[in-house]
Structure formats: structure tokens, C-alpha cells
Design a protein around this nucleic acid. Structure first.
Length: 291
DNA sequence: CGTATTTGACCCGCGC
DNA sequence: GCGCGGGTCAAATACG
């Protein structure tokens, strides 16, 4: 599937510096030409955006179909009705579809934050038995348990960066593929991501005896755009596996950029701000030319 | 000595 | 009401 045209170079700049200050007629003519050029660029962009949207919808459809088949198989392998209930709460994007109160036990319920649950599949070295996943946050392990339907233990972590951060995560190897770590995140961080993966690695190299984290190919596919948040949450097992190649990683980056661009262009506030900025520059330019 | 991890015990929801 | 099983606690332990 084609995600992006690599040779897609679009000049969206408004060249206001070409306006000669000597002749207003010439200036008007140049402006008209410039506006025509922008208009045609706008049409091209609209076309490309439509194309991208079509690709996105098609991809989502594929994922949806695959997800359906995947969970059908998983449910067949997990006879526990309790487990089934949990899995039913997680759709293909790892976001709860319905009220997730059934998942979270109300034991220490702090109803301060909604329990956003997302599931991330991470491929690691199968020989590596560690359940540590570097995802840019600092976690404190508070428990480990062997569950009934999976011979590999499940590790429980709490976010230890911010004292009041309610986020927890569970890490367990997939019963089908032991090289895949299944990480389930609960809740949302009430702080910024504390460190990038690179700095995380260097930090751990300072204390080599502790927390020897696995080096998985973490696919953090959740991105947000300020204002009305736009989430691109594409986490899914096979998708992550398929994106493990280097060239495919760049495809993800391109795709995320596309998503952000689409979200921005769809946002009326953004377009309004852009128009204001352009007109502001224009007015500023003409005012400096004609004092 | 301080901090993080381990691990057995306990709690509690859910199904029967 | 009872037992199962997942989730959490906290004392013990390990490590720098």
C-alpha cells in the first residue's frame, strides 16, 4: 500500500518579497499571479490530502479485519470468561470501546483519571527473559505473578517518575510468541515523558547492575497535536512486527507526519491562525512599503 | 545506607 | 457461601 509519495514536494510559501514598492499596478499583478499559484498549489494539496485520507481509511479497514481475526483466535485460546471480558474492552487501537469499569478493580480506585487502557506488543529477543521495557518513563516494579493461561510471569509496574502519577503497566510474554512482550498500560500520565530512549540507555549504563532492560523495538505510535487532541494509536501486534524493519520505521514516521498534517489542516482553528499569520505578514509588508 | 527488586501473603471481585 | 484467580502489599533481599 502506498502511504506517501516520496517525490511529493509542495511549495506552499507565499512569496511577498517580490512585490515592487515602486509600482502599485505591478504589485497587484504580481500578487494576482502569486495568488493563482497558491490556488493551484492548494488544489494539488487538497488532492493529495484526499489521497492520503483514502489510504488511511483503507489501512484502518485492513487493520480492523486483521484485528477481528486475531482476537477471535485469542479468545478461542482463552477459555476464561473473565479474561474474555477484559479483551472485549480493547479494540484494535488499544483504546477501550465501552466503559472500562469492568476491567479495573475498584480496590484503590482513584476516580481522578479515566482508566485509559492500551496494549502494546513489543518484539524482543526470545532468549531474553527480562520483562523490562524502555518506553521513556520510569517504572517501579511492585509485583510479579504467574497467571493461569500463560506460563510466563506477568510483571506489574507503577510509574515512579511523578509521585501522584496513576499510570500502571503490566508486562507479560505472549503465550503464542514468547519473543513478543505484551505491555498493557492503564491510565494516563499526569506529567511529561521524562526522558527519551537514548538518554534512558545512557542512564542505565551508569548503573549496569540494575534494571537491565531489554532492547525491544518499541513502537510508540501515539502522537498528539495540541488543542483538540488527535491520537494516532496504531499499536497492534502484527503491525508492530511488520514495522520492525528500518525502512518500515521511516514509513511509520512518514505516516505519523501525514496524520498530524491531516489533523492540522482539518482543524479550523489552525487554518484560521494560518490565514491570520499570512494576512498579518502581508499587511506588515505593505505598511512598511508604504509608510 | 539508601533504593530498587523479589516474592509470599493477603485482598477482593467474580463465577458457580 | 465458597473457591479461584488476578492484583496489591510489604517484609526480606540484593545491589551500588
Amino acid at each position: 500500500m502506498e502511504l506517501v509519495e516520496p517525490t511529493c514536494v509542495v511549495d506552499t510559501s507565499l512569496n511577498l518579497n517580490v512585490i515592487p514598492s515602486s509600482s502599485t499596478e505591478l504589485a497587484a499583478e504580481v500578487l494576482v499571479q502569486e495568488l493563482r499559484r497558491l490556488s493551484s498549489e492548494n488544489k494539488r494539496l487538497t488532492k493529495k490530502l484526499n489521497h492520503m485520507c483514502e489510504n488511511y481509511v483503507a489501512m484502518q479497514k485492513h487493520l480492523s479485519q486483521f484485528s477481528h481475526v486475531h482476537f477471535e483466535n485469542e479468545l478461542a485460546l482463552t477459555p476464561s470468561p473473565r479474561k474474555r471480558k477484559v479483551e472485549d474492552c480493547i479494540n484494535l487501537f488499544g483504546v477501550p470501546e465501552s466503559s472500562d469499569d469492568t476491567f479495573k478493580r475498584p480496590k484503590h480506585n482513584n476516580n481522578t483519571s479515566p482508566n485509559k487502557i492500551s496494549k502494546v506488543f513489543i518484539r524482543t529477543d526470545a532468549s531474553d527473559t527480562s520483562l523490562y521495557v524502555k518506553d521513556g518513563y520510569q517504572w517501579r516494579k511492585y509485583g510479579q505473578k504467574v497467571t493461569r493461561d500463560n506460563p510466563s510471569p506477568r510483571a506489574y509496574f507503577k510509574c515512579s517518575y511523578a509521585p501522584g502519577c496513576p499510570v500502571k503497566k503490566k508486562v507479560q510474554r505472549s503465550v503464542e510468541d514468547p519473543s513478543v512482550l505484551v505491555t498493557t498500560y492503564e491510565g494516563e500520565h499526569n506529567h511529561a515523558q521524562q526522558e527519551a530512549e537514548i538518554s534512558m540507555s545512557s542512564r542505565q549504563s551508569e548503573s549496569p547492575g540494575r534494571s537491565v532492560a531489554a532492547k525491544p523495538s518499541v513502537m510508540n505510535l501515539q502522537s498528539r497535536v495540541g488543542g483538540p487532541s488527535v491520537t494516532v494509536d496504531l499499536v497492534h501486534s502484527k503491525l508492530v512486527e511488520n514495522f520492525n524493519g528500518q525502512s518500515q520505521k521511516s514509513s511509520i514516521q512518514q505516516f505519523i507526519v501525514q496524520q498530524m498534517a491531516t489533523s492540522l489542516t482539518r482543524d479550523p482553528n489552525f487554518t484560521a491562525a494560518l490565514a491570520t499569520a499570512i494576512s498579518g505578514k502581508f499587511l506588515h509588508h505593505t505598511s512598511t512599503d508604504n509608510p
